[in-house]
Amino acid sequence: MSASHGVATVTTDRHFGKATGGKIAMWMFIAQDGFSFGALLLAYGVLRIVADAWPAAGVSVQDILGINLTAFATFVLICSSVTMVLAVDSAQKADKGATVRWLLATIAGGAIFLGIQAYEYTILSQAGIGFANSTWEGQEVNALFGSTFYVVTGFHGLHVLSGVIYLCFILAGTLRGKYTQGGLSYSPVELVGLFWHFVDLVWILVFTFIYLL
C-alpha cells in the first residue's frame, strides 16, 4: 500500500488480494489481541475447573451475575456492530451524512454498554463481590471468582472504551470529509470497524464463558 494525497491505493496481491497494508496490520493486531483474551479465558477456565466450588457451594454464577441485564448489553453490542458495518458501507459509497449517523449510533452503543458495565460493577461491589475477597448473602465466595470476573470483563471494557475513543477520532475525520472522498479513502473507517467487530466477537465468548456456563 502506498499513500497518495491521504488516500490509500492498493495492489492486488497473490496472497492478500486487495487488502491494504493497514488492513493486514489491523488483522495482525487483532490476532495478537486475541492471544491476550485467549490466555485470560484459558486461565479462567483452568482456575474454575480446579476450584472446589464455583463461585460457592450451593450458589450458581447466574445467582450472582445479572444475566438479563448482560444479555441486553450483548444485544446493544450486536446492534452497534450492525451500525458499524453500515457506517463502513456508507463510507464506501462516499455518503458522508449516512456515515456520520451510523458512526454516532455505534458510539452511542459503545457508551451504553460501558454504562451498563459501570452499573453492574457498582451493584456487584455493593453486594460483596470484590476483586480479592467476596461474599454473597453472608456466604464466603471463592476469591478467584471476583478476580477473574473483574479482570476479564474489565480488560474487555477497556477495549470498548478504546474503541469508542477511536470511533470519535474517525467521526471527527468523517465530519471533515476525509473518509468519504470515494476510492479507498474509506479505509480508516473499515479499520476501526474491524476493531469494533473484534470487541463484539470477544464479548460473545466472554458472555458465554463468564456469565452463562
Binding site: 488480494g17 493486514i24 495482525m28 483474551f37 467487530h197 460473545i204
Partner: peptide, 29 residues
C-alpha cells in the same frame, strides 16, 4: 458462542471474502 463468533468474523469482518492468508492470521488465536 462459536457459531455467533464465526458469523461476526465471516460477515461483519468480511473474512468470508478475504484471501486464505488473511484468514490464517485471523485464526491464529
Amino acid at each position: 458462542a462459536v457459531g455467533k463468533a464465526l458469523l461476526v468474523a465471516l460477515y461483519f469482518m468480511h473474512l468470508k471474502w478475504e484471501r486464505p492468508w488473511l484468514r490464517h492470521i485471523a485464526a491464529m488465536p
